[in-house]
Nucleic acid binder design. Structure first.
Length: 593
RNA sequence: GGCCCCGUAGCUCAGCCGGAUAGAGCAACUGCCUUCUAAGCAGUAGGUCACAGGUUCGAAUCCUGUCGGGGUCGCCA
């Protein structure tokens, strides 16, 4: 039950009646107006901006927005669930609902249980098939904290979209085709020689010095013995590369698993040209060529400072400027190989051919300059039918008690994601990374996130859940044998919930479906985290009121009916907290002693 | 120099497909522990929403420009 969506539909019906009577155009875009909580709770339960949004269309028949709003308000007053509908400000309609609606919301929520808030169809009435590609870290070493942010963000976004009613595929693109993985293989080969007793000295510039490759070297030694020692690189490179990438991906998968992240699809860049589908990059380029979107030409040099090695020459280019990019983009390197962009075009074509309505790519902010060309490519490949949304995740600044943690990348000595997860736990890492908009920089304080205080948002929200579960336990102690199942509590006299604090909790719970819907629509999981924090705050506040006013305590030994009504609220609250935390991939503990 | 992101309270940040008097947490100040967990709560104070124009009945939100911070800039991934 989503009272906001519900009333949006009811108001749309009224507008339809006006349209039928010729007082409004027939083709109004009804998605333009919103039903939302009023800015201040004192104004009512719902606020509608329809009269202002459609002011232009209504001008001929109604005159000013306020007059239009007044007519709408009169129509709304006939609704059996509306206690009062009044016009305010420039043309808002503030609706106060009859008291019986709130018990109804609670009952619906209790009946829905963990499904409360899940919209069966997604916004706009249509479930989509959505591909979320995230992490996609190069398989050249362990993940660092920055990768972790994209990983957690992408994973939570995928869960959110699933919960909002969409069909979601979680995908990881393995960049296993470039020169970097050759360098990786050479580095592993040195470790292999080292494992066989050779003194390899310092790892040369350009190779990967991290000692995480030492075990890979030992594994190679175990597998190949001395067989790779006296052969030219051309003979061992492929073997070593395959084994090393496999080892790196195992390590990355393990790091992700430590964050409770699993992907359904791991897509190898290499497979685009060497897989069963033939050279799919060539096919994608041909596809664009048929549409006359590929040509050979010269690119203007970048303005400002010229690169040292700039050489004006013909290139094979994709006409990305036709789709909003700033310059056309090269598809072939000077050595004839495909550019990374060409591979990425082919990869996105594979995803488009997979029948997705929406593609979401989660990238680091340093790839921001790449968005326009990818967007252009997806437009060209799908004839504008598939939406691409690139979500850029900003940097993570790792702190400890207010002091920056040094993250030297020299000699491969940097703080890995795994170290952070092991130190502070999955819940803290996930929640804190989601308690910030993805495109805002994030300060992650290792000391603060394990602090058990309200400064720590993870703890604050989890504690609210534990506290709610504690109330249910207390109730059982006070009323032995009490049935605290959702079904039993839904049958309680919920109209006994009249305290202002209780009602504001109910109203906040009623907003959950709306928050899920809008967060899913905007691809912004952080909205769930902020909502949960706000919900927890209302609960802690109400709890504390019971300190002075004992009759406000949730469990009252002398008033069984009232207690049951309040337990219904508590159960619903704990369910929403658990559901919301679940969407974020954060646990909801029953106690936190 | 081109392009992208950001600029909101002392600090960290929400709010942004236009909507009512711009919110929260921290820090500051004032209160509240014989407790259903004080691991908390209530209250006070704190703002030229970087700046200047524009569109609009209405702009923190949209557009243009300026300033400041970050990123990025033909063959890397």
């Amino acid at each position: 039950m989503n009272i906001f969506a519900d009333f949006h539909a009811r108001i749309a019906t009224i507008l339809g009646r006006f349209a039928a009577a010729g007082r409004l155009p027939q083709d109004l875009d009804l998605s333009r107006f919103v039903v939302e909580p009023p800015r201040e709770a004192a104004l009512g339960d719902l606020a509608v901006n329809a009269a202002m949004v459609f002011a232009k269309e209504a001008k001929a028949s109604f005159g000013s927005p306020r007059v239009f709003a007044a007519e709408l308000a009169i129509a709304l007053a006939d609704d059996p669930d509306v206690a009062q509908a009044e016009v305010a400000g420039p043309g808002f309609i503030n609706i106060r609902l009859k008291p019986h609606i709130f018990p109804a919301v609670l009952r619906a929520a209790l009946a829905a249980g963990a499904k409360f808030g899940a919209s069966p169809q997604g916004r706009g009435g249509r479930a989509q098939k959505i591909n979320v590609e995230y992490v996609s870290a190069n398989p050249t070493g362990p993940m660092h904290v920055g990768h972790g942010r994209g990983a957690v963000f992408g994973d939570a976004l995928a869960s959110l979209l699933e919960f909002a009613g969409h069909e979601v595929t979680r995908e990881y693109y393995i960049n296993d085709a470039g020169a970097q993985v050759d360098a990786l293989a050479r580095s592993a080969h040195m470790r292999y020689r080292e494992a066989l007793g050779e003194n390899i000295g310092a790892i040369p510039e350009g190779l990967y010095p991290g000692d995480y490759l030492a075990p890979v070297g030992r594994a190679l030694a175990a597998k190949f013995g001395r067989g790779l020692l006296d052969r030219p690189e051309s003979e061992w490179l492929e073997l070593v590369r395959v084994a090393t990438i496999e080892a790196m991906m195992d390590m990355i998968r393990a790091d992700l698993a430590a964050l409770n992240i699993t992907h359904e699809v791991f897509f190898s860049e290499r497979s685009l040209t060497r897989g069963e589908g033939g050279d799919r990059v060539a096919q994608a380029i041909d596809y664009l060529r048929e549409k006359d979107l590929v040509y050979v030409g010269r690119l203007p040099p970048p303005k400002g400072q010229l690169p040292d090695d700039w050489e004006d020459r013909d290139q094979t280019l994709f006409r990305s400027t036709q789709f909003g990019d700033d310059v056309d983009r090269p598809l072939l390197k000077s050595d004839g190989g495909y550019t990374y962009f060409a591979s990425d075009i082919a990869y996105h074509k594979v995803k488009i051919d997979g029948g997705f309505d929406t593609l979401i790519d989660v990238w680091g902010a340093d790839h921001g300059g790449y968005v326009k060309r990818m967007d252009a490519a997806v437009k060209a490949l799908s004839a504008g039918k598939v939406a691409l949304d690139v979500k850029l995740c900003q940097l993570v600044k790792l702190m400890r008690a207010g002091e920056p943690v040094k993250m030297s990348k020299r000699s491969g000595d940097f703080v890995t994601l795994r170290e952070v997860v092991d130190e502070v736990g999955v819940d803290a890492v996930r929640f804190m990374m989601l308690f910030r908009k993805n495109d805002a920089p994030l300060e992650f304080d290792l000391a603060k996130v394990i602090d058990q205080s309200k400064d720590n948002a993870v703890f604050y929200v989890q504690y609210a859940h534990a506290r709610a579960r504690s109330v249910l336990r207390q109730a059982l102690a006070a009323f032995p044998g009490l049935d605290i199942s959702a079904a039993a509590l839904a049958a309680a006299s919920l109209d006994l919930l009249v305290d202002e604090g209780e009602l504001s909790l109910v109203k906040m719970l009623a907003q959950f479906p709306r928050v899920v819907e809008s967060a899913g629509f905007a691809h912004e999981p952080h909205r769930i985290a902020f909502y949960l924090h706000e919900l927890a705050s209302l609960f802690h506040a109400q709890w504390n009121r019971g300190k002075d006013a004992h009759d406000l305590r949730f469990v009252n030994e002398n008033k069984r009916d009232l207690t049951c009504a309040r337990l219904a609220l508590i159960l619903c609250l704990s369910t929403v907290l658990a559901t919301g935390l679940g969407v974020l991939g954060v646990s909801a503990p029953d106690e936190m002693r």
